[in-house]
C-alpha cells in the first residue's frame, strides 16, 4: 500500500514536471504571465465568489424545504448543475460572438435565444418533478394519518 502510494505520488510529480517543462518551453513569458492570471482568477472566482454565493443559496433552499420529501433537494440541485454547466459553456461563445469573428463557418448560432429556452425547459422540468414529489409525499402522509 505504502509502495503503491509512493509510486503514484512519484508518477504525479513526474507528470506535473513534464507539464511545467512544456508549458515554460513552448510559451513566451508574456503568455505565461496570462496563464498565471487565468489560474489565479479561477481560484478567486471559485473560492471567493461562486462558493459563498452558492452556499448561501443552498442554505436558503434547505430552510425553505424543511418539510419537503428528501428527494426534492437533489432534483433542484441537479437541475441547477445542468443549467450551470451549459451556461458556463455558452457564455464564452456569446463573448466571442460579441467580439466579432472573421470566419463564417464558426459561431453562427443564435446561442443566447437557445440558452434562454434551454434554461426555461430545465426550470419547468425541475418544477414539475418537485411538484409531483411533494404531492406524492403529502398523499402518502394523509393516507398514513387516515390509517392511524
Amino acid at each position: 500500500m505504502r509502495a503503491a502510494r509512493g509510486a503514484l505520488v512519484a508518477l504525479g510529480v513526474a507528470t506535473l514536471g513534464v507539464g511545467v517543462f512544456f508549458l515554460t518551453t513552448s510559451l513566451t513569458p508574456a503568455r505565461l504571465v496570462w496563464v498565471g492570471v487565468w489560474l489565479a482568477a479561477c481560484v478567486i472566482l471559485h473560492d471567493g465568489v461562486l462558493v459563498p454565493l452558492l452556499s448561501l443559496l443552498r442554505a436558503r433552499i434547505r430552510r425553505l424545504g424543511r418539510t419537503w420529501p428528501p428527494a426534492v433537494l437533489p432534483v433542484i440541485e441537479s437541475g441547477f448543475a445542468v443549467a450551470a454547466t451549459i451556461i458556463l459553456f455558452v457564455v464564452p461563445e456569446l463573448w466571442a460572438q460579441h467580439r466579432g469573428n472573421p470566419n463564417p463557418t464558426i459561431l453562427q448560432g443564435a446561442y443566447a435565444d437557445r440558452l434562454v429556452v434551454v434554461v426555461a425547459v430545465i426550470a419547468v422540468v425541475v418544477t414539475v418533478t418537485v411538484r409531483i414529489l411533494v404531492r406524492r409525499s403529502r398523499a402518502d402522509g394523509e393516507r398514513g394519518q387516515a390509517r392511524r
Partner: peptide, 10 residues
C-alpha cells in the same frame, strides 16, 4: 446523478 446529468446534457 447531478454530475452525470450535467455531462450527458452538455
Amino acid at each position: 446523478v447531478g454530475i452525470g446529468a450535467s455531462a450527458a446534457a452538455l
